[in-house]
Every structure is written in structure tokens, then in C-alpha cells.
């Protein structure tokens, strides 16, 4: 396992622990004896449950990260942010329309952005957060959706925002509007759903369900595969 040389000192909520230097913050907490209940979801960088704030001893910059995706360092002072009160507004996706108005109604605080860029600096996914908020302000939802697509809703940006904006919620609204209303409709999907509803595949599927396994094996092993 880890020899003495590779150990580093970290500070979990201010208390010192010696842990192997190749661990992530999350596995280091477990190494230190914590049984995680909060602040731990997917463990692989997708769910945003493990938002964490840290400072390296002697450095004055506060950094934000995902505990499951970040390796420990000597002198790391660590506090997790397992919950942050971002503010999600509710709406009926079938009723709203992708107009500039809708952001004004649901998330008016985005117009108080002072352009400090703290959100972008805090983003654990290296997204251009200030930019996607700007797109939202201008009603350019498709661009906002694209720019915010990799957001894991960890909330680290919102923690740092002087305007109290709930960035991940804004991006989410823009993406739902884009997916439902702005992206072009899919003709072949609509057609196939109709064909199935009309029963066009019913007898074919019945037939294949009735076939003996030997015949199915033959069909499967000799089926043509699209290049």
C-alpha cells in the first residue's frame, strides 16, 4: 500500500489527518474513518453531490471542486458543501414558451449579474458560466443550453455569486426549452410512433415471439449488420 513518504496532511473541517497522497478527497475522508451519508452520490463526477471548498495552507485563494474527482494535496483545508439552497422555480413545461419573457418571469435575478466572473472561476466542470447566464439574459436559449450542457448542478458557482443567482437551474430551464421547442422536430420518430400505434408491427413481432429458439439462433447469427 502507501508508504510513509507518500502520505500528506489534510484538514477535514479543520481537523488534521494523514492520508495517502494518491487518494481523492472523497476516498481520503473514508480513509480517515468517515462513513459518508451526504456529499456522496455517483462517485464518478456526474451527480454534483460532492461539492467541496478548499484552501491550500499558505495560499489565500479559495477553490471549489468535486470531492470524487480531485486528488488530495499537502496542506489542504477541506469543507464539503453537501447542500446549497439554490432556488428552483416551478413551471409547466407544456405551458411556457421559449421567449425572453420567461427568464424574466422565472429567474429575474439573472439581470442583476455584475459580471464579476466568480461563477466561471468556481465551476467544477470548467464551464463558462457567466457566458451562459449572459445568453439566458438575452433569450438565446440554444446557446445557453449548449454552453451549460456539462453542468452537474453541484452549485459551486451559486455559492460564490454576489447576485444570488441559481445558475444550474437557469441552464436547466434553457436546456428543456431547447430540447422541447427550439431543436428541430424529428420526423422519423413521429412516423415510427404512429406506425406502431396503428399496429403495423404487431403481427411481425408476434411471429418472431413464437419462433423456436433454434430458428431465432439462426436468424440472429446470420442477421445483416449495418456498416
Amino acid at each position: 500500500m502507501s508508504n510513509e513518504k507518500n502520505m500528506v496532511n489534510i484538514y477535514l473541517y479543520g481537523k488534521q489527518y494523514k492520508v495517502p497522497g494518491d487518494l481523492t478527497i472523497m476516498t481520503a475522508m473514508e480513509y480517515a474513518g468517515y462513513t459518508l451519508k451526504r456529499g456522496c452520490g455517483c462517485r464518478h463526477g456526474f451527480c454534483g453531490a460532492c461539492a467541496t471548498i478548499y484552501r491550500i495552507k499558505g495560499d489565500n485563494e479559495l477553490k471549489t471542486c468535486l470531492a470524487c474527482q480531485t486528488q488530495v494535496q499537502e496542506g489542504m483545508y477541506i469543507a464539503s458543501i453537501p447542500f446549497f439552497p439554490t432556488d428552483k422555480r416551478t413551471y409547466d413545461i407544456g405551458e411556457i414558451k421559449p421567449t425572453e419573457q420567461i427568464m424574466m418571469e422565472l429567474y429575474p435575478e439573472i439581470y442583476s449579474c455584475i459580471g464579476c466572473n466568480a461563477c466561471t472561476k468556481a465551476c467544477t466542470q470548467s464551464l463558462n458560466v457567466m457566458q451562459y447566464i449572459a445568453y439566458a439574459q438575452r433569450g438565446e436559449f440554444e446557446k445557453c443550453a449548449e454552453e451549460s450542457f456539462d453542468c452537474v448542478s453541484c452549485g459551486c458557482c451559486s455559492v460564490r455569486c454576489p447576485a444570488g443567482i441559481s445558475h444550474p437551474m437557469v441552464g436547466l430551464l434553457a436546456r428543456r426549452l431547447t430540447g422541447k421547442y427550439i431543436a428541430p422536430e424529428t420526423e422519423h420518430l413521429k412516423n415510427r410512433v404512429e406506425e406502431i400505434n396503428k399496429g403495423e408491427f404487431d403481427s411481425l413481432i408476434e411471429q418472431v415471439m413464437q419462433k423456436p429458439i433454434t430458428e431465432m439462433k439462426e436468424l440472429y447469427n446470420t442477421r445483416d449488420i449495418e456498416k
Partner: peptide, 30 residues
């Protein structure tokens, strides 16, 4: 399995209508 494959296109449509952003080309083809 019959249900899985027969109801698949409708599942995609349901998700799309909820606002899931599937990868599409400019004409809307998946």
C-alpha cells in the same frame, strides 16, 4: 422484451417532449 422494443420510440418521444436534448442533425434527424 416485446414491450421494450415496441414502446421504445414512444419513450424517446416522451423524453424529447419533456425537453431532453437528444443529439440531432440540422434537419432534426437523430
Amino acid at each position: 422484451l416485446r414491450r421494450l422494443v415496441m414502446e421504445a420510440p414512444d419513450a424517446i418521444k416522451w423524453l424529447n417532449d419533456l425537453g431532453v436534448m437528444f443529439d440531432k442533425d440540422a434537419d432534426g434527424r437523430m
